[in-house]
Design a protein around this nucleic acid. Structure first.
Lengths: 126, 126
DNA sequence: CTGGATCCGATTAGATACTG
DNA sequence: CAGTATCTAATCGGATCCAG
C-alpha cells in the first residue's frame, strides 16, 4: 500500500479533493449518511428521521452523494413510485467515520457548552 | 460508561448538537484541525499551509473552534505580537477522525471521479 | 410518494483597506 | 505579525407551487 506521493492533496486549493471535501463537510450530508448506515431507506423515511431538513435540501444532498458514488438509488416501478436509497460499497467505507463524528458531538456536548460559556464570559466587554 | 438515554440527539433539530455539528462539518474547520494536529502553529503559518483560505475565513474558523473549546490560543507579548494556536485536550480527541476524513477523500478520489463521470454521462439529456 | 422548478430573503465568503 | 472593519457578489436555504 504505497501512500507516498499521492497525486491528491486537500491542502492544495486547485486539487479536486477540495470540492469533494466541501460536499462531505456538510451538516446534511453527514446526517443522511449516518441515517443510511442503519438501513436503506426511502425518501420520506429520511425526511422524517432527519428533523428539520427540507425536501429541497434532502433532494440536493442525495443527488450530490449519488453523484460522488457514495449512495445508490433504486427505483421500484410501483404505483405510486417507490425509491430506496442505500449506501454504496464506497459509502460504507466512510460512514463509520461520519457516524463517529455525530456520536462524538453528542458525547462531548456538555464540555463544549461549558467552553462556550467560559469563552463568552471572558469576551464580554459591553 | 452509560451511553444510553443521552440527552443529545443530532437528528433532533432543536438539539444544540446541531449547531456544533454545523460548525464542525465545515471545510475550513476540518483543514484547520488537520493542520494543527501535526504541530501548534501561528496564524500566518496556518494561512500558508491551507492554500486558498482567506484571512477572514481563517480568523472566523479559529474563533469558532476556540469558542467550542477545541483549540487554544496563546499570545506571546513579543514585538510584534506572536500568537500560537494549538489543539486543546478536547480537540485532540477529535482530530484523528477529522484527519481520517481528509485522507479518505485523497485515497478515494479516483473512485469518486469515476462515479461522477458515470453519473454525468447517465444524466446527460441535452 | 418522490421529486422538479421558481422566487426570494438571509447568510456567507471573497476582496480590499486599515491598525496596534 | 495578527488581526478588525466594511462592502459586495455569490450562494444557500426555506417556502411554495406543480407533476409523473
Amino acid at each position: 500500500m504505497n501512500k507516498l506521493q499521492l497525486p491528491y492533496d486537500v491542502y492544495d486549493d486547485r486539487c479536486p479533493t477540495r470540492d469533494v471535501l466541501s460536499r462531505l463537510a456538510d451538516k446534511w450530508a453527514l446526517l443522511v449518511l449516518g441515517c443510511l448506515e442503519k438501513e436503506p431507506q426511502r425518501f420520506n423515511s429520511l425526511r422524517r428521521h432527519i428533523r428539520g431538513i427540507t425536501q429541497k435540501m434532502l433532494t440536493q444532498t442525495l443527488r450530490k452523494l449519488e453523484r460522488d458514488g457514495l449512495i445508490s438509488r433504486k427505483i421500484f416501478p410501483t404505483v405510486p413510485v417507490t425509491v430506496e436509497y442505500s449506501l454504496s460499497p464506497l459509502g460504507k467505507t466512510l460512514t463509520h467515520t461520519m457516524s463517529f463524528l455525530t456520536l462524538w458531538v453528542e458525547d462531548n456536548m456538555d464540555a463544549m457548552l461549558a467552553a462556550q460559556a467560559a469563552f463568552d464570559k471572558a469576551n464580554a466587554t459591553s
